[in-house]
Design a protein around this nucleic acid. Structure first.
Length: 566
RNA sequence: GCGCGGGUAGUCUAGUGGUAGGACAACGCCCUUCCGAGGCGUUAGCCCGGGUUCAAAUCCCGGCCCGCGCACCA
């Protein structure tokens, strides 16, 4: 186990799930400190991507019914048929392998693959025989209800919940674009081989924002806020750039302004929670790498001991999802967008003469008249041909008049496009911890210290008696109660010597230690010690809550708040 | 899923068939006027299952977990 992983487990950030039963790959428990850290990161994410956008947050079920994933494409793209060689153990996607070797398209069913394998006596490249083809489904399936039940899947992303609720959401936003919908929650993928600690999990935490925009207006009103931010970019041709976002958008490296906006916002968010800027870059997906739904996609990648890992995907999913759900559900998932000026259109239309059509066409008369209303009149032909219930019918001039009308068109129905920043919270939390992990030397002794940003530190303040005896202990406990009552996450420790305790809290990244010493009993003051510098200032106990809150919300120096001690 | 290497207290580690040892950590007491000091004591371990053997942490088989490579990662 790596140095940092060992610490994270020992000190209570992350634990292997089901440990007493031997564990299970792909699942982790958030231990007390890790849970607190991730919650804090989530709350900062909310500030960035919900509160400061025209956006709302919702919470939808983690189990989805089959229909949702048939529409989204996950049911098919997740059920690849795999074939495995008995000899060398290599696993291939059956359709890819068959196409490559035999040049034929095979249906993605076990039966179809089996037939092709039998007929052509398909062998592995190494000459070995293949085992029976088997479905390789990366979604966990389940049954809803008793007995045979209804087929369901654990969601492989939180996104679908937002698309499924689109009609309601559009109403909530009074049918006005753009708007965003966010969801923070669990998602599940039955990974074949989860690895590398928290990097690939079978159950993981996502924070996703679906930002719905007019397809012709991929801009963001707040782009100017990030336009001059410099960003490290790697484009789909592996060219590296370091330039401002406005430059990147102008040069077309980033497809549109709104993608650029969310790249900028993502960068600021990651820096605020403590990702090291030197270890952050944005990489564009190559053409063959993009998911089935996306046109352009940029990943935020962070360098860790596992190499560069993807922590955020920012994709232009276009109208793919809404169109699919509209098609499969039969619901109209469009938004009516009024033109700034209504457009007047001259049009010629057919006016049916019902007194003639009726007697001639009898029961078909009504449908013929309906067909007229959508007929495009472009000539003064003597006869027109329309289709009613699949039957072509010729209708001569005596059955209708042609009339010229002027219509006013107020706007159009459009299917919004969606820009999706999707955050992997587990990887982000881990990267924050790794980037904060440091060793230095204090008084000639090596010290392990988590230099977490104050905003994400799981324990905010530790109160320590200088000596573990009365009256120091009681006084320290009093201060603990005071700080806790003000909502500050405070811990108390009287075990071992003062130095040992400082080191304990340094290791878990607690930014401030309050020490009760002899002088406390003379003038009601205590010292505040800064984790990173180990410097101390002396302040009045009564002013502690205010000072600590100010310190925790900023990265201000403690020496601004009191007289330097020692 | 395949291959290679691992799995001994909370952590690290010694232990190649015969009573499982240490360090650090944790906890208690003592000591202690600010950075892992010291003393005494305590808690705590052979991943799971099967086999071989008089006897298994140790040898064999299977599983689980961890690391690495391959494959997979819409």
């Amino acid at each position: 186990m790596s140095d940092i992983m060992e610490m994270l487990v020992r000190r209570g950030f992350l634990w292997q799930s089901f440990e007493i039963y031997g564990g299970m790959a792909g699942f982790i428990d958030y231990a007390p400190l890790g849970n607190n850290l991730r919650r804090k990161i989530e709350n900062i994410w909310r500030k960035y991507f919900v509160i400061n956008e025209r956006a709302v947050e919702i919470d939808t079920p983690t189990i989805g019914i089959e229909e949702v994933f048939i529409a989204s494409g996950h049911a098919t793209s997740f059920t690849d048929v795999a074939i495995e060689c008995e000899n060398c153990g290599r696993v291939y996607r059956a359709d890819h392998y068959v196409k490559e070797k035999l040049g034929i398209e095979v249906d993605e069913t076990v039966e179809a693959v089996k037939e092709v394998m039998d007929v052509y006596d398909l062998k592995c490249e190494c000459g070995g025989k293949f085992k029976e083809p088997a479905p390789m489904n990366l979604m966990f399936s389940t049954k809803i209800g008793p007995g045979k039940g209804k087929k369901g899947y654990l969601r492989p992303e939180t996104a679908q919940g937002m698309f499924v609720d689109f009609k309601r959401l559009a109403g909530y936003f009074r049918e006005k674009l753009p708007f965003g919908v966010a969801q923070i929650g669990r998602a599940y993928r039955n990974e074949i081989s989860p690895r590398q600690g928290v990097i690939r999990l079978r159950e993981f935490n996502q924070a996703e924002l679906e930002f719905f925009v007019h397809p012709a207006e991929k801009t963001h009103p707040d782009f100017s806020q990030v336009a001059s931010d410099k960003v490290k970019l790697v484009d789909k041709f592996d060219n590296e750039h370091e330039m401002t976002l406005s430059e990147a958008v102008e040069k077309g490296i980033i497809a549109n302004q709104i993608l650029g906006y969310f790249i900028g916002k993502t960068r600021r968010f990651l820096l605020e929670i403590g990702i090291n800027e030197d270890k952050l870059r944005f990489r564009q997906h190559k053409d063959d790498e993009r998911a089935h739904y996306a046109t352009d996609c940029w990943d935020a990648e962070v360098e860790t001991s596992y190499g560069w890992i993807e922590v955020v995907g920012i994709a232009d999913r276009t109208d793919y999802d809404l169109k699919k759900h509209s098609e499969y559900s039969g619901e109209d998932l469009t938004i009516f967008v009024p033109y700034t000026q209504p457009v007047k259109v001259k049009r010629r239309r057919l006016v049916p003469k019902m007194n003639k059509i009726g007697p001639t066409f009898k029961e078909k008369a009504k449908k013929i008249a309906e067909a007229f209303s959508t007929f495009n009149v472009n000539s003064d032909a003597d006869e027109i041909e329309i289709v009613v219930d699949g039957e072509r019918i010729k209708i001569s001039k005596e059955f209708f008049d042609i009339e010229e009308v002027e219509e006013e068109i107020a706007g159009e129905k459009i299917v919004p496009h969606v820009i999706e920043p999707s955050f992997g919270l587990d990887r982000i939390s881990y990267a924050v911890l790794e980037h904060a992990y440091d060793k230095d030397v204090v008084d000639g002794e090596e010290r392990r210290v988590l230099r977490l940003k104050r905003k994400v530190s799981p324990v905010e303040v530790a109160v320590l008696p200088l000596l573990s005896r009365e009256p120091f202990e009681s006084k320290a406990q009093e201060i603990v109660s005071l700080l806790r009552s003000k909502g500050i996450y405070t811990e108390y420790d009287d075990s071992g010597s003062i130095g040992r305790r400082y080191r304990r809290f340094d290791e878990i990244g607690t930014p401030f230690c309050i020490t009760v010493d002899h002088q406390t009993f003379d003038d009601d003051t205590v010292t505040i010690r800064d984790r990173d510098t180990t410097r101390q200032v002396r302040v009045k106990i009564e002013s502690l809550p205010t000072i600590l809150k100010e310190l925790l919300e900023s990265e201000r120096d403690i020496t601004e708040f009191g007289e330097v001690f020692r």
